[in-house]
Design a protein around this nucleic acid. Sequence first.
DNA 1: ATTTGGCACTCTTCTCCTCTGAGTGCCAAG
DNA 2: CTTGGCACTCAGAGGAGAAGAGTGCCAAAT
Lengths: 337, 337
Amino acid sequence: MLDDRKLAVLRAIVEDYVSTHEPVGSKALVDRHNLGVSPATIRNDMAVLEEQGYIAQPHTSAGRVPTDKGYRLFVDRLSTIKPLSGAERRAIETFLANAYDLDDVVSRTVRLLAQLTRQVAVVQYPSLTRSSVRHVELVPIASERLLLVVITNTGRVEQRAIETHEPVSDEAIAHLRALLNARLDGCWLTDVPDALADLPEQVSADERALATTVLSVLLESLVEKHEEKIIIGGAANLARADLSQSLRDVLEALEEQVVLMRLLGEVGDPSSLTVRIGTENPHESLRTTSVVATGYGAGDQAVARLGVLGPTRMDYPGTMGAVRAVARYVGQILAGS
Amino acid sequence: MLDDRKLAVLRAIVEDYVSTHEPVGSKALVDRHNLGVSPATIRNDMAVLEEQGYIAQPHTSAGRVPTDKGYRLFVDRLSTIKPLSGAERRAIETFLANAYDLDDVVSRTVRLLAQLTRQVAVVQYPSLTRSSVRHVELVPIASERLLLVVITNTGRVEQRAIETHEPVSDEAIAHLRALLNARLDGCWLTDVPDALADLPEQVSADERALATTVLSVLLESLVEKHEEKIIIGGAANLARADLSQSLRDVLEALEEQVVLMRLLGEVGDPSSLTVRIGTENPHESLRTTSVVATGYGAGDQAVARLGVLGPTRMDYPGTMGAVRAVARYVGQILAGS
DNA sequence: ATTTGGCACTCTTCTCCTCTGAGTGCCAAG
DNA sequence: CTTGGCACTCAGAGGAGAAGAGTGCCAAAT
């Protein structure tokens, strides 16, 4: 249906349009790529490509621009992920290796991605579901207020204040802390509810109220409502890529956690890249943007996702290479800690 | 030098320009404000104001626009901070009261400020220097890796990974943890170095290396290098306020921690508002923006700062009212926890 | 001494027009 | 199937003109 030359023409159109940001015409194409045929032939091919919906003209007498469908074909069949240069790899490695805690890893990652791709980077904090409990701490911070701190094996620290509504003795706290640690040490977060189901019955009557309160907060914060945290960086890059959509709408969308979550998509196989192009995006305001995302994690299990967002007219091979590389290195760093 | 009417004219110019976003002419002024004089008189006054540098014309036959100096006079002498409505106050209160930990307080605050002022909000995390140590936790997360967690009385949790470069026994860790807590409980963060100066000498020889390492990380993370964390929100509002500067430059500036730090200014009296207008700003790219900031904190001591950034052409009385109100409520929340 | 109406003047901005050129589609010939 | 030729279309640049907002200044009025 589309012979090799037509595909080559589509590829050339995408590449030229991405680099020049201007509709590309038949003459320019034969000049810049040695296709061995005349502009007229290219025009015929273009007509076919347009009919099939891979390219479009902004107005009658302009060159062609790839459609979302065209980019899709390009990404799926006409391009290969472009590996980073050695220098880039080394830069990533050392930059990430210097991070000193989880927050720092994430914030460095987001900056790195933004710089490397010159686009908006989005990084999700490592999910809790794949982690296990390293330590639970219960600290009084006021007479009727406790701080619950859970430290996981991925180095993430989760904290939550607890209102006890009545004074609590230090012994009761110490006892509960010991109990929690004994029960939970090494426990997968997903198993926490089971491990603690009978906790209130295991303590003396006067500690029961406390135990129940703490338990509910713990479950809520860690399991049910593990609201994933996401940070973004390189928003300034949006301003360079003059989107046809109002920039404001895009910025607004990026401030909503929910949108960001859906943007990155489901956590899946870390070795595969998700590319969502233009209208394939879940959100209205992101119709003229594309997202390249992937999972990352310690080992081969993805614990969270990261990616970048840019205009549909982006350098897909390069972006995909950068995203993949960064995800790999972050995984290594996480596995190493 | 400037009689009352000229000041009234300046005030009217600022108010009109802020609401219309267009240079204001003499006729429009007498129409919208009942100044009781003719346009010609206003023109004379305007000529004087312009000569003194309070207003300027974008081009010869346009109305007048306030200069930075004009805004400055307006803020200092011609306007009063506009208190929020009762409904707004209640909304702030309930919105903040529902926060469940420090992170949440800060993130709610930044969203609140951005929404209330329709500008970019900037909030600094409560500083550590005014806090005291509530608890120190030392947790092994790998054979040669510890996690140091410090919980302060403001509910902030500081964490840092430590490389020990040699296996450490659980007893050594427990011992050190007990020692640290005994020494530091309730200790002001500024006093931590003194309190721990002789720590290495107090432990047995085989724990000394560990103690030294932990100590240095602790001091570094808490005292010397308490890099203040700042978060921003409402960046989308920037796009609405079409700045004459390239939006990109502003976004870029806002991504740099250092710039943000200087933007908010020195922590001072929480009851006073800092307004920095246009070129009074420390950063080149923020020449067309103004910052309204103030300190906030539990009680009457400021522990950090917050504020908003917007075009110089902003509603100063309203913005100042919102910033002040939010700062107060956040202070209450922090004091209550 | 200040205020005021009148008036000429200056610019920006909007609209309308034309012209140019890139790029196309189509056709007939190779 | 490819190619050169050619007429056609249309966005965008550039220019002229008109409109309109606003000013500065002056002489008269208060």
